[in-house]
Protein backbone atom coordinates (compact mmCIF):
# COMPACT_ATOMS: atom_id res chain seq x y z
CA UNK A 1 0.00 0.00 0.00
CA UNK A 2 1.36 3.40 -0.92
CA UNK A 3 1.12 6.38 1.40
CA UNK A 4 -1.73 8.00 -0.51
CA UNK A 5 -3.94 4.88 -0.25
CA UNK A 6 -4.20 5.12 3.52
CA UNK A 7 -6.84 7.54 4.74
CA UNK A 8 -6.01 6.73 8.33
CA UNK A 9 -2.63 5.64 9.60
CA UNK A 10 -1.78 4.68 13.13
CA UNK A 11 1.97 4.62 13.63
CA UNK A 12 3.16 2.93 16.83
CA UNK A 13 0.46 4.82 18.66
CA UNK A 14 0.82 4.41 22.41
CA UNK A 15 -1.31 5.91 25.14
CA UNK A 16 -0.84 5.43 28.87
CA UNK A 17 -3.38 6.14 31.58
CA UNK A 18 -1.40 6.20 34.82
CA UNK A 19 0.16 2.76 35.17
CA UNK A 20 -1.89 1.19 32.40
CA UNK A 21 -1.20 1.22 28.66
CA UNK A 22 -4.59 1.63 26.95
CA UNK A 23 -2.85 1.25 23.61
CA UNK A 24 0.65 -0.10 22.86
CA UNK A 25 2.49 0.44 19.58
CA UNK A 26 -0.71 0.33 17.58
CA UNK A 27 0.13 0.39 13.87
CA UNK A 28 -2.57 0.15 11.23
CA UNK A 29 -3.36 1.56 7.79
CA UNK A 30 -6.96 2.07 6.73
CA UNK A 31 -7.11 1.97 2.92
CA UNK A 32 -9.18 4.53 1.03
CA UNK A 33 -12.68 3.27 0.25
CA UNK A 34 -12.60 0.48 2.81
CA UNK A 35 -15.14 -0.27 5.50
CA UNK A 36 -12.84 -1.06 8.40
CA UNK A 37 -14.11 -2.63 11.62
CA UNK A 38 -12.07 -2.08 14.74
CA UNK A 39 -12.94 -4.84 17.18
CA UNK A 40 -12.08 -5.57 20.75
CA UNK A 41 -13.66 -6.15 24.12
CA UNK A 42 -14.58 -3.21 26.31
CA UNK A 43 -11.36 -1.51 27.38
CA UNK A 44 -9.34 -2.99 24.52
CA UNK A 45 -8.26 0.46 23.33
CA UNK A 46 -10.69 1.08 20.46
CA UNK A 47 -12.13 4.33 21.71
CA UNK A 48 -8.67 5.57 22.75
CA UNK A 49 -7.49 4.97 19.17
CA UNK A 50 -10.47 6.86 17.74
CA UNK A 51 -10.03 9.75 20.18
CA UNK A 52 -6.38 10.13 19.21
CA UNK A 53 -7.45 10.03 15.59
CA UNK A 54 -9.89 12.87 16.09
CA UNK A 55 -7.33 14.92 17.98
CA UNK A 56 -9.44 14.68 21.13
CA UNK A 57 -6.61 12.98 22.99
CA UNK A 58 -2.84 13.25 22.79
CA UNK A 59 -0.88 10.06 22.34
CA UNK A 60 1.85 9.32 24.86
CA UNK A 61 4.05 8.15 22.00
CA UNK A 62 3.68 7.51 18.28
CA UNK A 63 1.15 9.26 16.11
CA UNK A 64 -2.14 9.05 14.31
CA UNK A 65 -2.44 10.44 10.80
CA UNK A 66 -5.70 11.23 9.13
CA UNK A 67 -6.11 12.38 5.51
CA UNK A 68 -2.32 12.62 5.38
CA UNK A 69 -2.07 15.02 8.33
CA UNK A 70 -1.05 14.63 11.93
CA UNK A 71 -4.28 14.10 13.86
CA UNK A 72 -2.98 16.03 16.88
CA UNK A 73 -2.80 19.28 14.92
CA UNK A 74 -5.69 18.90 12.51
CA UNK A 75 -6.96 22.26 11.17
CA UNK A 76 -10.76 22.81 11.30
CA UNK A 77 -11.09 22.67 7.50
CA UNK A 78 -9.63 19.17 7.54
CA UNK A 79 -11.80 18.19 10.51
CA UNK A 80 -14.85 19.02 8.35
CA UNK A 81 -13.81 16.23 5.98
CA UNK A 82 -14.35 13.71 8.77
CA UNK A 83 -17.79 12.64 9.96
CA UNK A 84 -17.94 11.27 13.48
CA UNK A 85 -20.68 9.62 15.46
CA UNK A 86 -19.70 9.01 19.06
CA UNK A 87 -20.73 6.06 21.15
CA UNK A 88 -24.19 6.74 22.60
CA UNK A 89 -24.09 10.24 21.11
CA UNK A 90 -26.72 12.45 22.68
CA UNK A 91 -28.69 14.97 20.68
CA UNK A 92 -30.30 17.96 22.35
CA UNK A 93 -33.71 16.50 23.30
CA UNK A 94 -35.90 19.60 22.99
CA UNK A 95 -34.59 20.58 19.56
CA UNK A 96 -36.44 19.80 16.38
CA UNK A 97 -34.47 17.73 13.89
CA UNK A 98 -34.36 20.68 11.49
CA UNK A 99 -32.90 22.90 14.24
CA UNK A 100 -30.17 20.35 14.87
CA UNK A 101 -29.19 20.76 11.25
CA UNK A 102 -29.25 24.55 11.44
CA UNK A 103 -27.26 24.49 14.67
CA UNK A 104 -24.65 22.16 13.26
CA UNK A 105 -24.58 24.06 9.96
CA UNK A 106 -23.77 27.31 11.75
CA UNK A 107 -20.74 25.84 13.48
CA UNK A 108 -19.37 23.29 11.07
CA UNK A 109 -17.59 24.27 7.85
CA UNK A 110 -18.85 22.43 4.81
CA UNK A 111 -22.18 21.43 6.36
CA UNK A 112 -24.70 21.09 3.54
CA UNK A 113 -28.30 21.54 4.71
CA UNK A 114 -29.63 20.11 1.44
CA UNK A 115 -27.60 16.93 1.91
CA UNK A 116 -28.83 16.67 5.49
CA UNK A 117 -32.47 16.97 4.49
CA UNK A 118 -32.01 14.53 1.59
CA UNK A 119 -30.65 11.96 4.07
CA UNK A 120 -33.60 12.60 6.39
CA UNK A 121 -36.06 12.10 3.51
CA UNK A 122 -34.41 8.87 2.61
CA UNK A 123 -34.61 7.69 6.20
CA UNK A 124 -38.22 8.76 6.43
CA UNK A 125 -37.56 11.12 9.34
CA UNK A 126 -39.79 14.15 9.72
CA UNK A 127 -37.55 17.19 10.31
CA UNK A 128 -40.26 18.97 12.29
CA UNK A 129 -40.19 16.33 15.04
CA UNK A 130 -38.49 16.99 18.32
CA UNK A 131 -35.53 14.77 19.19
CA UNK A 132 -37.21 13.56 22.39
CA UNK A 133 -40.09 12.11 20.35
CA UNK A 134 -37.84 10.07 18.11
CA UNK A 135 -37.14 6.40 18.70
CA UNK A 136 -33.66 5.36 19.71
CA UNK A 137 -33.01 4.01 16.23
CA UNK A 138 -34.19 7.24 14.61
CA UNK A 139 -31.89 9.24 16.86
CA UNK A 140 -28.97 7.08 15.75
CA UNK A 141 -29.99 7.69 12.15
CA UNK A 142 -30.24 11.45 12.72
CA UNK A 143 -26.76 11.43 14.26
CA UNK A 144 -25.50 9.64 11.16
CA UNK A 145 -27.31 12.08 8.84
CA UNK A 146 -25.69 14.99 10.71
CA UNK A 147 -22.26 13.41 10.37
CA UNK A 148 -22.83 12.83 6.65
CA UNK A 149 -24.15 16.30 5.85
CA UNK A 150 -20.72 17.82 5.08
CA UNK A 151 -20.17 14.85 2.67
CA UNK A 152 -17.09 13.73 4.58
CA UNK A 153 -14.39 11.59 2.97
CA UNK A 154 -13.99 9.61 6.13
CA UNK A 155 -16.73 8.51 8.50
CA UNK A 156 -15.87 7.30 11.98
CA UNK A 157 -18.56 5.51 13.95
CA UNK A 158 -17.96 4.44 17.53
CA UNK A 159 -20.29 1.53 18.21
CA UNK A 160 -23.15 2.94 16.11
CA UNK A 161 -25.44 -0.04 16.73
CA UNK A 162 -25.12 -0.03 20.50
CA UNK A 163 -28.47 -0.47 22.21
CA UNK A 164 -30.50 -0.78 19.03
CA UNK A 165 -33.00 -3.60 18.70
CA UNK A 166 -32.44 -6.08 15.85
CA UNK A 167 -34.92 -4.45 13.48
CA UNK A 168 -33.55 -0.95 13.95
CA UNK A 169 -30.01 -2.27 13.79
CA UNK A 170 -30.79 -3.82 10.44
CA UNK A 171 -32.22 -0.51 9.19
CA UNK A 172 -29.11 1.24 10.42
CA UNK A 173 -26.91 -1.24 8.58
CA UNK A 174 -28.88 -0.68 5.39
CA UNK A 175 -28.30 3.02 5.80
CA UNK A 176 -24.62 2.43 6.38
CA UNK A 177 -24.35 0.39 3.22
CA UNK A 178 -26.50 2.70 1.20
CA UNK A 179 -25.41 6.15 2.27
CA UNK A 180 -21.97 5.63 3.54
CA UNK A 181 -20.35 3.08 1.35
CA UNK A 182 -22.08 3.45 -1.99
CA UNK A 183 -20.47 6.87 -2.40
CA UNK A 184 -17.00 5.43 -2.06
CA UNK A 185 -16.22 6.83 1.35
CA UNK A 186 -13.90 5.32 3.88
CA UNK A 187 -15.59 4.08 7.03
CA UNK A 188 -13.90 3.19 10.28
CA UNK A 189 -16.21 1.78 12.93
CA UNK A 190 -16.24 -0.19 16.13
CA UNK A 191 -18.85 -2.79 17.02
CA UNK A 192 -19.53 -5.75 19.22
CA UNK A 193 -22.06 -7.29 16.86
CA UNK A 194 -19.89 -9.57 14.79
CA UNK A 195 -22.61 -10.69 12.39
CA UNK A 196 -23.05 -7.01 11.46
CA UNK A 197 -19.32 -6.61 11.02
CA UNK A 198 -19.28 -9.61 8.75
CA UNK A 199 -22.00 -8.07 6.60
CA UNK A 200 -20.71 -4.54 6.17
CA UNK A 201 -16.97 -4.59 6.79
CA UNK A 202 -14.35 -5.54 4.22
CA UNK A 203 -11.44 -5.13 6.66
CA UNK A 204 -11.14 -5.98 10.30
CA UNK A 205 -8.63 -5.38 13.10
CA UNK A 206 -8.80 -7.00 16.52
CA UNK A 207 -7.36 -5.20 19.53
CA UNK A 208 -6.82 -6.95 22.82
CA UNK A 209 -5.51 -5.24 25.94
CA UNK A 210 -4.22 -2.37 23.87
CA UNK A 211 -2.33 -4.60 21.44
CA UNK A 212 -3.26 -5.26 17.82
CA UNK A 213 -3.65 -9.03 17.45
CA UNK A 214 -4.66 -9.36 13.81
CA UNK A 215 -5.71 -7.13 10.92
CA UNK A 216 -6.51 -7.36 7.24
CA UNK A 217 -9.23 -8.14 4.73
CA UNK A 218 -12.06 -10.03 6.45
CA UNK A 219 -11.77 -13.09 4.21
CA UNK A 220 -7.98 -13.21 4.61
CA UNK A 221 -8.20 -12.98 8.38
CA UNK A 222 -10.80 -15.72 8.40
CA UNK A 223 -8.82 -17.99 6.11
CA UNK A 224 -5.59 -17.53 8.07
CA UNK A 225 -7.01 -18.99 11.24
CA UNK A 226 -8.27 -22.53 11.72
CA UNK A 227 -8.93 -24.86 14.61
CA UNK A 228 -7.29 -28.27 14.53
CA UNK A 229 -8.94 -31.01 16.54
CA UNK A 230 -6.54 -33.88 17.21
CA UNK A 231 -7.87 -37.13 18.63
CA UNK A 232 -5.62 -39.60 20.40
CA UNK A 233 -5.95 -43.20 21.56
CA UNK A 234 -5.08 -42.28 25.13
CA UNK A 235 -5.14 -38.97 26.97
CA UNK A 236 -4.17 -36.05 24.76
CA UNK A 237 -0.61 -34.77 25.26
CA UNK A 238 0.07 -31.24 26.50
CA UNK A 239 -0.34 -28.58 23.82
CA UNK A 240 2.88 -27.82 21.90
CA UNK A 241 4.81 -24.58 22.22
CA UNK A 242 4.65 -23.91 18.52
CA UNK A 243 4.62 -20.53 16.83
CA UNK A 244 1.16 -19.68 15.62
CA UNK A 245 -0.73 -21.59 18.30
CA UNK A 246 -3.22 -19.09 19.63
CA UNK A 247 -5.16 -21.18 22.03
CA UNK A 248 -5.51 -24.76 23.07
CA UNK A 249 -7.92 -26.81 25.07
CA UNK A 250 -7.72 -30.48 25.95
CA UNK A 251 -10.64 -32.66 26.79
CA UNK A 252 -9.85 -36.32 27.45
CA UNK A 253 -8.49 -37.82 24.26
CA UNK A 254 -9.07 -34.70 22.20
CA UNK A 255 -6.87 -31.63 21.88
CA UNK A 256 -8.16 -28.54 20.10
CA UNK A 257 -5.70 -25.93 18.90
CA UNK A 258 -6.50 -22.62 17.28
CA UNK A 259 -3.66 -21.79 14.91
CA UNK A 260 -2.87 -18.95 12.57
CA UNK A 261 -0.96 -19.12 9.29
CA UNK A 262 -1.70 -22.72 8.38
CA UNK A 263 -2.34 -25.95 10.29
CA UNK A 264 0.63 -27.85 8.78
CA UNK A 265 3.11 -27.57 11.65
CA UNK A 266 0.49 -28.41 14.23
CA UNK A 267 -0.89 -31.30 12.19
CA UNK A 268 2.61 -32.69 11.79
CA UNK A 269 3.23 -32.38 15.52
CA UNK A 270 -0.06 -34.14 16.28
CA UNK A 271 0.73 -37.03 13.93
CA UNK A 272 4.17 -37.59 15.40
CA UNK A 273 2.57 -37.58 18.85
CA UNK A 274 0.18 -40.34 17.90
CA UNK A 275 -2.98 -38.51 16.81
CA UNK A 276 -5.35 -41.01 15.22
CA UNK A 277 -7.69 -38.48 13.72
CA UNK A 278 -7.31 -34.85 12.71
CA UNK A 279 -10.10 -32.47 11.84
CA UNK A 280 -9.46 -28.98 10.60
CA UNK A 281 -12.30 -26.58 11.19
CA UNK A 282 -12.76 -23.10 9.81
CA UNK A 283 -13.80 -20.48 12.30
CA UNK A 284 -16.50 -17.89 12.24
CA UNK A 285 -15.48 -14.30 12.87
CA UNK A 286 -17.06 -14.61 16.29
CA UNK A 287 -15.07 -17.74 17.18
CA UNK A 288 -11.79 -16.25 16.11
CA UNK A 289 -12.57 -13.00 17.91
CA UNK A 290 -13.13 -14.94 21.11
CA UNK A 291 -9.95 -16.98 20.69
CA UNK A 292 -7.90 -13.83 20.06
CA UNK A 293 -9.37 -11.91 22.93
CA UNK A 294 -9.19 -14.65 25.55
CA UNK A 295 -5.63 -15.77 24.83
CA UNK A 296 -2.63 -14.10 26.48
CA UNK A 297 -1.14 -11.25 24.48
CA UNK A 298 2.35 -12.69 24.92
CA UNK A 299 1.34 -15.91 23.11
CA UNK A 300 1.62 -16.78 19.44
CA UNK A 301 -0.08 -14.93 16.64
CA UNK A 302 1.60 -11.56 16.61
CA UNK A 303 -0.25 -8.77 14.90
CA UNK A 304 0.12 -8.74 11.15
Amino acid sequence: MTMSDAVVRFDRLTRWFGERAALSDFTLDVPRGSVYALLGRNGAGKTTALRCLLGLMRPTRGRAEVLGMDAATLPPAARARIGFVAEGQTLVPWMKVRMLGEFQGATMPGFDAAVFSAHLDRLGIDASQRVKNLSRGQRAQVALALALAPSPELVILDDPAMGLDPVVRREFLEVMIDLVHAEGRTVLFTSHVLADVERVADHVAILHQGVLRVSGAVDDVKSRIVRVHAHFDGDAPAAPELAGVLKSSARGRALSLTVCDGPEAVSEWARTHGAVKLDVERLTLEDLFIDYTTSPVTGGGAAA
Binding site: A195, E281, R282, L283, T284
Partner: peptide, 8 residues
Amino acid sequence: PSSPEPLF
Protein backbone atom coordinates in the same frame (compact mmCIF):
# COMPACT_ATOMS: atom_id res chain seq x y z
CA PRO B 1 -23.12 -14.09 8.30
CA SER B 2 -22.41 -16.43 11.20
CA SER B 3 -21.00 -19.15 8.95
CA PRO B 4 -17.22 -19.66 8.69
CA GLU B 5 -17.54 -19.60 4.92
CA PRO B 6 -16.72 -16.20 3.39
CA LEU B 7 -19.85 -14.32 2.36
CA PHE B 8 -18.72 -13.88 -1.25
